[in-house]
Design a protein around this nucleic acid. Structure first.
Lengths: 208, 208
DNA sequence: GTCTATACACCGATAGAC
DNA sequence: GTCTATCGGTGTATAGAC
């Protein structure tokens, strides 16, 4: 029993160090850019020497991998919360989903680059870190299904529209909001194209 | 007179070396990835030592800059050729433009990353290298104007749609053509949304 | 187990000899 | 114009101190 307690405290301490390293890594990435993250800069702020990080992570890419996983895990929760109480109207549902992803993406460039762009040369996310991403995408597909969108091609087009606007926003007007205005408009075009009923038709109590 | 001839030959030789370095740089970038380009790899294939490249380019980013400029210059010419004989119908024009950019983008990942993504950490294109990019975008805007699209927001949305599909294609299905199918469909949705007349209205014999 | 010191191979870039 | 030598910086492997 005492042995177990000791092991637990050790494991907790180890986990705390891991989290501290990741927190520092995020702050360095946000300050200097995701690609400019260096082990020495992280180690400095943690109060270690660079090679000591290898006690907690197998490589620099393993740190990126953990950051990737935690970012998607966080968005899975954020999105799960924001998509909890959805409007009844199909268009309203799509609008909420699109805004949720857009806002989360635009809020943090380094995070978006890690989550959705291949901006780090050798980095490929592990299957494990990728899992919350897959779940979140599936959740979005299900939501669109509940809004009456059955065609997978239409889903891909919507994702392309939202992703394209996020990219434009971050590349051409970081910190601004010019593309936010266009988001609802573009979603509306898409909804017309796939034949979603206008808002007024379904603003009553939920059918089924 | 003889002096001038000598200087010309020198200038020609120098320019030829520059072009050879750039050609090699493109081939290395395509083989190992744009970000994995190293001066030593380029120098090896050219038959030089790495520091000798600094005789012809001020820095590694200067090489990227020349590559960026030449890629956009090439697309300016390709697009100028492909958009020379346009259909009369507004939708046809937009379709041709969208396909032209999509095909050129999807044909070469390294080139697309350099032209349209910020995948190289410290690289910012010079104003000079950026010029053909600006001209080509303006040409696209003019073309859309000739198709009856006056609203700049609608133009941005179209660019986002095309760019989003290119990104998806390169990220999720490189070498495939799943998103090519979606391109016409997405453009059609957009054309409906901005109120372009259907093809049939203008599919008669060519006026003018 | 956790961290340090040392070292290695590679990178972009500079200085100076030829 | 090209070379050699070298610099500071990077990720990372390893041996050993505690």
């Amino acid at each position: 029993m005492l042995g177990e307690t000791t092991r637990d405290r050790k494991a907790e301490r180890r986990e705390a160090t891991r989290r501290e390293i990741l927190d520092v890594a995020w702050s360095v990435a946000r300050e200097h850019g995701l690609a400019q993250l260096t082990l020495r800069a992280v180690a400095d702020r943690v109060g270690m020497r660079a090679p000591s990080l290898y006690t907690h992570f197998a490589s620099k890419n393993a740190i990126y991998d953990a950051m990737f996983g935690s970012a998607w895990l966080e968005y899975e929760q954020v999105s799960g919360r924001e998509l909890r109480d959805l409007p009844d109207s199909p268009r309203g549902r799509v609008r909420v989903m699109a805004r949720s992803f857009f806002e989360y993406s635009v809020a943090d460039l380094a995070r978006y680059q890690l989550m959705n762009q291949r901006t780090i040369p050798g980095f490929v996310p592990s299957e494990e870190a990728f899992a919350p991403s897959v779940r979140t995408v599936q959740q979005a597909i299900d939501l669109l299904g509940s809004a009456g969108v059955a065609d997978r091609d239409d889903v891909e087009i919507l994702f392309a529209i939202i992703g394209g606007l996020v990219d434009q926003q971050l590349a051409n007007d970081p910190g601004g909001d010019t593309r936010r205005r266009l988001l609802d408009r573009a979603v509306e075009m898409w909804a017309d194209g796939v034949g979603l009923p206008p808002d007024s038709e379904t603003s009553g109590p939920e059918p089924h």
